[in-house]
């Protein structure tokens, strides 16, 4: 009986190896500056919108990456109704990326985390400045028509983004990254989101947006930390 009990305990000990803490050591492990090259390249292929953005993220524990993204977008679209929507505005995103690669192996040794997959969350915001021109007001019964322009409208729009991607260190801090983002519109100061047809950083306000980012940049590792 005693032998059996001892054997049982040692198996339990083996299965319950102490978990390695993933958040240990220095907190600050680096800083990255990236520019999105995907959107400008897609813009060159045509379309009504141009978008440019840069990202700044901080590496904490090689697992958490608080991030700030700043961008500027323009769009001009003539609808079937002949109304022209024209916008130029900056946009801002704040959020966090979470590295999916554990910085420490189960045996407690450090693992290289210069190439890692991640998931993230953003809150984004844009003060949308837009013009509406060639707006026809037609009074069918009275037989009158007027064409009007509504210029320099400013409305705020906010949205959430859920994303997943990969960051790769190519050579001594020169880093590439890509991410795919799923966006959902949260709020606007306009009476309805249809007023802000295109929101810089979000895209068309109707429906859920999907966006692909391809970035290139540089990572400044703290001290001798290049892992």
């Amino acid at each position: 009986m005693g032998g059996s009990s001892s054997s049982h305990n040692s198996t339990e000990e083996y299965n319950q190896a102490p978990k390695v803490k993933q958040f240990q050591g220095d907190v600050f492990r680096g800083l990255s500056v990236h520019a999105d090259i995907g959107s400008p390249i897609i813009s060159l292929l045509g379309g009504y919108a141009r978008s440019y953005e840069v990202q700044l993220d901080v590496n904490l524990y090689r697992r958490l990456y608080p991030i700030f993204e700043l961008g500027y977008a323009t769009a001009r679209k003539e609808a079937l109704s002949k109304i022209v929507y024209d916008t130029k505005a900056p946009f801002f995103r704040v959020g966090l990326n979470y590295g999916l690669l554990k910085p420490f192996r189960d045996d407690g040794t450090e693992r290289s985390v210069i190439c890692y997959p991640f998931v993230g969350l953003r809150y984004a915001f844009s003060p949308v400045t837009y013009n509406l021109s060639n707006v026809e007001i037609k009074d069918e019964y009275w037989g009158t028509v007027a064409v009007e322009d509504f210029m320099n409208n400013v409305k705020y729009a906010g949205w959430m983004e859920v994303l997943g991607g990969v960051r790769v260190d190519l050579f001594k801090g020169l880093t590439l990254g890509w991410s795919i983002r799923l966006k959902t519109f949260l709020h606007t100061s306009a009476p309805d989101k249809s007023y802000v047809w295109y929101v810089p950083g979000y895209g068309k306000s109707s429906g859920m947006g999907v966006m692909f980012n391809y970035t290139i940049g540089y990572t400044f590792y703290s001290g001798n930390d290049t892992k």
Partner: peptide
């Protein structure tokens, strides 16, 4: 009063 609805629908008065 003119009220803009959308670029597809234009304005209502």
């Amino acid at each position: 009063s003119e009220e803009f609805i959308s670029i597809e629908c234009g304005c209502i008065v």
